[in-house]
Amino acid sequence: MTFVFASFRSRIWAAAIVVPIALSLSALGSPAAGADKISDGQWYLNYLDVSAAHKISQGEGVRIAVIDTGIDPNHPDIRGSVEPGVDVRQFPASGDGLTDDDGHGTSMASLIVGHGRIRGIAPKATVVSLKYADSVSSSPTAMGSAINWAVEHGVKVISISAAHVDRDLVLQQAVEKAILQDVVIIASAGNKPEKSAIEYPAAFPGVVAVSGIGSDGQLWSSSVTGPEVLLSAPAKGISTAWRDNRRVVTDGTSNSAAIVAGMVALIRAKYPTMPATEVIRRLISTATDKGPAGRDSAYGFGVPNLVAALTAPAVSASAGRSVAPSQIAPTRIDAPGAEFPLRTALFLGGGCLTIVILAVGLVVMVVRRRRPE
């Protein structure tokens, strides 16, 4: 039995179309048919030459925070590769994040560390489950709290396959803090028609915003595009793990972000002391250019060439396809009110100074009048 459904997740998550195709413990319909669909949905492995990349690195020792709907650690495709995290939906945060009543978080985890029927990009890495949402609700503030938790617990790669229209201050400051702490954050660009522009956190400077492509290497028609896009990666017709020991085929830039997060894990495993900005430069400087020459709003710098990213010599900051450091990471953390225009700040500062001068003058006049003759 094969069917397509769309739920509330289509308004939150970047993977909006889900086609269940097989159970891991009991097949639906013909097992051979299910196996074929699973294989077809892993076209990204050959497209990205993942087997060659695995001869160089498999993500050993790297922890990736998956900020999502939680992760089912017992799914056979990811069992043994999931680390407890936390559920940040309530304050104070509690639990371990190891429940997934939606399926999306488990799906993303399998693209990163899958080592069963579903094969991920970094099978020897570990995903840390940070549950910030469920099937019916999510919050950008909770997402920011999850990022802060990841930074405080030493995680150096964060994968986010979700987007919010609000430029939430907690989320913004958490992103900036993470980047300044040498963390690589990867986020999905979003899907049409639910999204029409790149939202947050992908829209924040320093975040690796990823658009989606199909198996033909061309932009997926439902991928959101915009000047924030840095890279593009497989999105359409991707097989993944799902809740209740299922496997599904999904469309969405959620997949693209998780796949790039796995790539970052491979690079960080091979080059454990390489700064985050250099990890990103390595990916973009070796990417296969797509669309118009150079960076564009559809593909960014192109589709990562994983083997080249793992084997290329040190990337010069002045290389023609590199980006300025200010595009990769912020140089400061904005405090509340830091976005006031300069003229506003000068006006307020001048007004305060005037008030102080008047107050001092008034005190002096009162004192003088009270002096005895």
Rank of each mutant, 00 (worst) to 15 (best):
S138E: 13
S145K: 07
E152R: 12
V151Q: 09
D166V: 09
S159G: 13
A187G: 05
V151H: 11
V184K: 04
H164N: 12
I158K: 05
A122E: 10
E194D: 15
N148Y: 11
H153I: 02
S161G: 14
Q181V: 03
G154V: 00
S139P: 12
V128N: 08
L169Q: 14
S159L: 10
E152T: 12
Q173T: 14
S139F: 08
A133E: 03
V170K: 14
R119C: 04
S135I: 07
L171M: 15
T141D: 11
A150D: 02
V157I: 15
P123E: 08
A163H: 02
A142C: 07
A133C: 01
M143V: 08
V128M: 07
N148L: 10
G144R: 02
S137Q: 08
S129N: 00
R119I: 02
V184W: 00
A122G: 11
V128W: 06
S188A: 15
G120F: 01
I147N: 14
S161C: 11
Q173S: 14
P123R: 11
E194G: 12
Q172E: 15
V184E: 05
H164E: 12
A146D: 03
S161Q: 09
V175F: 00
K156V: 00
V170M: 14
A178T: 02
R167D: 15
H153M: 04
G120C: 05
I179Y: 02
I121W: 08
N148M: 08
G120A: 04
I121V: 14
